[in-house]
């Protein structure tokens, strides 16, 4: 349970970090909050020769709004999602999901960019970037590029990040007056990995769904959008019939596998139950006023 020996390099410069990775010839690894990386090193699932500590790079921090986009620095700690007024106002889905992310002490260290770059399929925030239609800013020695959350999560712990690239910020369309969002998950114990979790964000015209994005966690090898369920309710009011149709359509979106924790059948059932509850809450025009966060 001790990490293999490595060299440690801390820098305040993004450029220095990118160059250090490049020089390490494939043996480098970026370290931000370390809440998944450090146990992985201790278990020797990973054994890089060089750890590049990017946690002090100023340009990766901060939350700021520019026009209709909220830019969340990759080093934003999970705990900040619970306290930041900008997050509460402009990206409330993150505020609602944050209490479910690990435990308080993990939330003090773990970073938003880190959990997205790791892409654990049972993590809350990567799935929420799908529901919020977020965009990622990515830096490399070749420059910077942006890419949508849609298409970024490609396989188990596999993303669109190329070796050496650093996720620097997450751009989130600001939450609007006609938007609503809800999050919930089913777990045996708060803080445990969810059996199934989901976040839904929709834009409403009166009570009709104009657009809606539904993102699940813990039901496959990546965070997943439920596009068939979205299509089943787009343009409709969230009546009992509509919700039932979305639940039925979920069978075309999710294909969970049996594992030691629960059967695929039960996980699918729980996903439908959860979706029904979430859409039921979303159907309430005042759902953004309810203080459901504990």
């Amino acid at each position: 349970m001790k990490a293999r020996a490595f060299k440690y390099f801390r820098t305040q410069s993004l450029e220095d970090a990118l160059q250090a990775f490049d020089r390490a010839g494939g043996e480098g690894c970026y370290l931000a909050g370390g809440q998944s990386l450090v146990p992985s090193l201790s278990l020797r699932l990973q054994a890089p020769e060089l750890l590049i500590d990017i946690s002090r790079i100023e340009s990766l921090t901060g939350i700021s709004r520019s026009g209709n986009v909220l830019r969340v620095g990759a080093l934003t700690r999970h705990a900040e999602m619970l306290t930041s007024p900008e997050i509460a106002r402009h990206a409330p889905l993150l505020r609602r999901a944050a209490p479910f992310v690990a435990h308080p002490a993990i939330r003090n260290m773990g970073t938003f960019g880190g959990t997205i770059a790791l892409a654990d399929p049972s993590a809350e925030f990567p799935a929420m970037t799908l529901a919020m239609d977020a965009e990622f800013e990515i830096a490399s020695l070749a420059g910077t590029r942006t890419t949508k959350a849609d298409g970024f999560f490609r396989g188990l712990f596999e993303t669109g990040l190329q070796p050496g690239e650093i996720l620097t910020a997450i751009n989130i369309p600001c939450f609007g007056n006609a938007d609503r969002c809800v999050f919930d998950e089913l777990a045996r114990r708060r803080g445990d990995y969810a059996l199934v979790g989901a976040g839904v964000q929709g834009n409403f015209a009166q009570d009709l769904v104009s657009t809606i994005r539904i993102a699940f966690l813990s039901v496959g090898s990546t965070p997943l959008r439920a596009r068939h369920a979205e299509a089943a309710i787009t343009g409709r009011a969230l009546s009992a019939d509509a919700i039932s149709d979305a639940q039925a359509a979920l069978g075309d979106d999710l294909d969970p596998e049996d594992n030691e924790e629960t059967s695929a059948t039960m996980r699918m059932h729980l996903a439908r139950v959860l979706l029904g509850r979430l859409l039921g809450r979303l159907s309430q025009p005042d759902c953004m006023r309810q203080d459901e966060v504990t």
């Binding site: 349970m1 990490a3 440690y8 801390r10 370290l31 370390g34 809440q35 450090v38 146990p39 201790s42 278990l43 750890l51 500590d53 946690s55 705990a79 435990h103 308080p104 002490a105 993990i106 003090n108 260290m109």
Partner: peptide, 29 residues
């Protein structure tokens, strides 16, 4: 547990509770 599950190793880092098993001493420089 030495993997961030049990909470026996919590300390305050700059005033915030963190797992001292989930970071290296060099990170606290």
């Amino acid at each position: 547990c030495e993997m961030g599950a049990c909470g026996a190793c919590l300390v305050l880092l700059n005033g915030k509770a963190v797992h001292s098993c989930l970071m290296f001493a060099v990170q606290a420089h």
